[in-house]
């Protein structure tokens, strides 16, 4: 067995990588939520913040390449959020509720940003993980 498959434990990863990713992880999370929640006020928004959240999955995969993420659940959550993305504007924007109550506009924008952010983040995360663990179940895949 001399192929790419290696049976070493995840703890054999480079200690530098582990420390750097461990240090950066909370800041990446914070930056993702900052970009999502301030989408209507500063540059950014649902898609950009969602991509930053998806890069959290990538960072975890780099230091701990074990396929134990439940992608089915993430995919189901993504479907639910797509339904919400369709329902929220249909119920609020297209019916004219927002036009009659302009004080809810900021709330509506923030809600939409959060919905799109979660949808994109889980979607890209599932995509990357499924490609990364393609045919590698039960084994450890180092980069």
């Amino acid at each position: 067995m001399s192929g790419p498959v290696s049976d070493t434990m995840p703890t054999d990863e480079s200690i530098v990588l582990q420390m750097v990713v461990g240090l950066l992880y909370p800041f990446m999370l914070l930056f993702g939520f900052y970009v999502i929640l301030n989408g209507h006020y500063t540059p950014g928004g649902g898609f950009q913040g969602g991509s930053v959240l998806a890069s959290l999955f990538v960072a975890r995969y780099v230091v701990y390449p074990v396929d134990d993420t439940d992608t089915e659940t993430l995919h189901s959550i993504q479907r639910v959020f797509l339904a919400l993305i369709v329902i929220a504007p249909s119920a609020v924007l297209f019916t004219g509720v927002i036009a009659r109550n302009p004080e809810f506009r900021s709330l509506y924008l923030t809600t939409m940003d959060v919905l799109i952010g979660v949808q994109v983040g889980f979607g890209l995360g599932v995509a990357v993980l499924r490609f990364a663990f393609f045919q590698g179940v039960g084994k450890t895949w180092h980069l």
């Binding site: 209507h40 797509l82 369709v86 924007l93 900021s106």
Partner: peptide, 23 residues
């Protein structure tokens, strides 16, 4: 739209259908 960011205003209000179908 009460947004301070023109891109967010266009994506989430004027061009909402685009965002929906992008998702």
């Amino acid at each position: 739209t009460h947004a301070k960011n023109a891109v967010a205003a266009i994506l989430l209000d004027y061009r909402m259908y685009d965002t929906m179908f992008e998702a």
